[in-house]
């Protein structure tokens, strides 16, 4: 089966991801020069932003998966099973990435801005995405694992996309005339650029590997449940 082959790519992806992470770590610590104003602590930035970008992508993917699920769900097709599994996987990996963002961010802010936490728009937005992901997982865990429960979670993922736009807008204006922190300004040094893109790519590969492995596990779980059910039904007759 073609699809099974793609899904079975988990271990290869994991190896690729590990290699990319090692290379990115090398680039961050040994190639990129030390930033002049923030100093060594700026090295947190590379993996921090890499995680943040991939968290956003995971959230978007979760929303798209939810939409496809709601559209195809009625047919009970294989597509709806696959996107449902992708929904769980992206949400879980998204929460993991969000946790990384929210832990490394304050550590960097401590040195860069002199405070652990500030209600800066981007930080606030990350926190809200993290909370939405957590709500999604709570729905998956407690709202029932039938079609209905899956549908509610998918609905949250879908409605989360426009909500995110409003949250983004609101937190941007919320702080009043708060200046935007310009991240990209200092990235003109070649070594820094390399480290930045290497770590973004590394985190992408890590996320994709984890998502693929988790989605496959979820699909197998569903298949197992079905097999047990049909076995019970077979014994009953």
């Amino acid at each position: 089966m073609n699809k099974a082959n793609i899904i079975g790519a988990g271990p290869i992806l994991a190896i690729l991801a590990t290699a990319a992470v090692l290379y990115a770590l090398y680039a961050v610590f040994f190639v990129a020069p030390i930033e002049a104003t923030m100093g060594f602590v700026q090295k947190i930035f590379y993996f921090h932003v890499g995680s943040a970008i991939n968290m956003m992508l995971a959230f978007a993917l979760c929303g798209v998966a939810g939409l496809v699920f709601l559209v195809t769900e009625r047919a009970g097709s294989r597509v709806s099973r696959v996107v449902d599994a992708i929904g769980v996987a992206t949400a879980e990996v998204g929460v993991t990435l969000g946790a990384i963002v929210l832990v490394t961010g304050p550590l960097w802010a401590r040195k860069a801005w002199g405070t652990w936490w500030t209600w800066e728009p981007r930080l606030t937005l990350s926190l809200m995405i993290f909370l939405l992901f957590l709500a999604y997982l709570a729905l998956r865990a407690f709202a029932g694992s039938d079609r209905f429960g899956r549908g509610v979670a998918a609905g949250l993922a879908v409605i989360g996309l426009p909500a995110l736009y409003f949250i983004h807008f609101a937190v941007q204006r919320w702080g009043g005339a708060h200046p935007q922190v310009v991240y990209k300004g200092g990235l003109n040094v070649p070594g820094m650029k390399l480290a930045f893109f290497a770590s973004v790519l590394a985190m992408s590969l890590v996320s994709v590997a984890l998502i693929v492995i988790r989605a496959r596990q979820e699909l197998n779980n569903r298949r197992l449940d079905d097999l047990f059910l049909s076995l019970d039904a077979g014994e009953g007759t």
Binding site: L132, L134, F142, G151, V152, L156, A163, I167, A170
Partner: peptide, 27 residues
């Protein structure tokens, strides 16, 4: 109303509902 209808039959509805709606309603 949307999530109240969806979670009508869920156990722990009272906890799940604010968990889901509060982040969405933050704006």
């Amino acid at each position: 109303t949307l999530f109240s209808a969806m979670l009508m039959n869920a156990r722990m509805k009272e906890v799940l509902l604010p968990l889901v709606t509060f982040p969405l309603l933050m704006p």
